[in-house]
Simulated assay, not measured.
Amino acid sequence: MKKITAMLAFLLAFSTSLFASDNDLWEKSTLNQIMERKVLRVGLDAGYMPFEMTNKQGKIVGFDVDIARQMAKAMGVKLEIVNTAWDGIIPALVTDKFDIIMSGMTLTAERNLQINFADPYIVIGQSIMVRNGLEDEVQSYKDLNDSKYTVVSKLGTTGDIAAKRYLSKAKLRLFETESEGAIEVVNGKADAFIYDLPFNAVYSSQNPGKLVHLDTPFTYEPLAWGVRKGDPDFLNWLNNFMRQIQGDGTYDKIYAKWFESSEWHKTLK
């Protein structure tokens, strides 16, 4: 009897300890802090069509922004957009400048060492825009892997990584923004721009006759939301939120607005 009583006492103490531990974890959760603050702070780098861009009124809009707005609505809180330079966006998340990265970020093993990711919300890949006159000569990334070509991309992105990995023989120049790199090809100062397919598809449609888009991606890149380490409650909520909006048609509606329509092109700067 004494052994049974002692065992019950141990189990009670153990379960109480677990409950206290779980409660402490929730108290520290970003989700709990958002609910108490009543503001969802989203970090992004405005300049990546059609995920996040600045319109003529100076407002940041795009696919990620509309998803973030739905997220804040589901939480019952206000949305605050924190526009952040790409090369500092992960350090800014880690140091609590905002709650989540929603900026078309590719989930990579290297980034996953620094932060955690929710389940991917879209899969894309790198594609190529080449200058006029090269369309017969260059038909895939393999054709560009030659020292006679100059390729450009955005610094610190998977376009940068892909160019170094697959086009090591070509001359590589990197720029702070997508637009700076792409305009080099339009102006004939570079032979090709390596970057995410959605951006290249939109940019080429906005500049007809000025370059050629090779629209078959040559990499596999799942995009996902980034959060700080050690926060299972927030990750659980984010994954279930994505399942909900994918199931009720909200995701498809937002996707159609930004990926299947070109009406928003004329609203940009």
Rank of each mutant, 00 (worst) to 15 (best):
Gly58Gln: 12
Lys97Pro: 09
Ser168Cys: 05
Glu36Asn: 04
Val186His: 04
Ala13Asn: 02
Asn112Leu: 01
Phe259Arg: 11
Thr16Ser: 09
Thr150His: 09
Asp191Asn: 14
Glu135Ser: 11
Thr219Ile: 03
Gln57Ala: 15
Ala92Tyr: 13
Ile183Gln: 11
Lys269Ile: 13
Lys59Asn: 12
Ser17Gly: 12
Lys189Met: 09
Asn116Thr: 00
Glu135Thr: 01
Ser168Thr: 05
Asn132Ile: 11
Leu107Cys: 06
Val82Phe: 12
Ala201Pro: 01
Asp99Glu: 10
His265Leu: 09
Ala13Thr: 07
Ala162Thr: 13
Val77Phe: 13
Tyr255Pro: 11
Asn240Ala: 03
Leu144Arg: 10
Tyr220Val: 06
Thr158Phe: 15
Lys189Asp: 06
Thr108Phe: 10
Asp233Leu: 01
Phe259Asn: 13
Val185Arg: 03
Asp191Ser: 04
Ala163Gln: 10
Ile34Glu: 00
Gln126Leu: 05
Ser127Val: 03
Ile89Cys: 13
Lys154Gln: 13
Asp45Trp: 13
Thr216Pro: 03
Asn116Met: 02
Asp119Pro: 02
Ala46Leu: 09
Leu93Ile: 09
Ala162Ile: 10
Asn116Leu: 01
Pro217Gln: 06
Thr54Asn: 04
Gln33Trp: 00
Leu31Trp: 00
Pro222Ile: 02
Asp96Glu: 15
Glu184Thr: 06
Tyr141Lys: 01
Thr219Gln: 05
Asn32Glu: 01
Ala92His: 14
Asn239Asp: 15
Ala74Leu: 08
Ile161Ser: 10
Ile122Thr: 13
Pro50Ala: 06
His265Thr: 04
Asp196Gly: 12
Ile245Arg: 08
Ala163Thr: 12
Ala9Ile: 05
Ala190Ser: 09
Ala163Phe: 10
Ser204Phe: 02
Asp191Val: 06
Ala190Gln: 07
Ile60Phe: 12
Leu167Thr: 07
Ile81Tyr: 14
Gly159Thr: 04
Lys269His: 10
Phe193Tyr: 15
Asp24Phe: 00
Ala163Cys: 12
Ser262Gln: 15
Phe193Val: 06
Ala92Glu: 14
Ala68Val: 07
Leu8Met: 05
Tyr203Gln: 03
Thr150Gln: 14
Phe14Trp: 12
Thr84Ala: 12
Val212His: 07
Phe234Thr: 08
Tyr203His: 03
Thr30Gly: 08
Tyr48Trp: 07
Arg228His: 01
Thr250Asn: 02
Gln70His: 13
Leu40Gln: 02
Ile89Ala: 12
Glu176Trp: 00
Ala20Lys: 00
Asn145Lys: 08
Glu36Ala: 07
Asp96Leu: 03
Val186Glu: 05
Thr95Arg: 14
Glu184Met: 11
Ala109Lys: 14
Asp248Gln: 08
Lys169Leu: 14
Ser15Val: 01
Trp237Thr: 00
Ala256Val: 05
Leu44Trp: 08
Met1Tyr: 03
Gly209Asn: 06
Arg243Ile: 04
Phe14Gln: 05
Lys38Ala: 08
Val77Asn: 12
Gly181Ser: 04
Asp136Trp: 07
Pro120Asp: 08
Ser168Pro: 07
Met49Ile: 04
Asn32Leu: 00
Leu40His: 04
Thr108Lys: 08
Arg111Tyr: 13
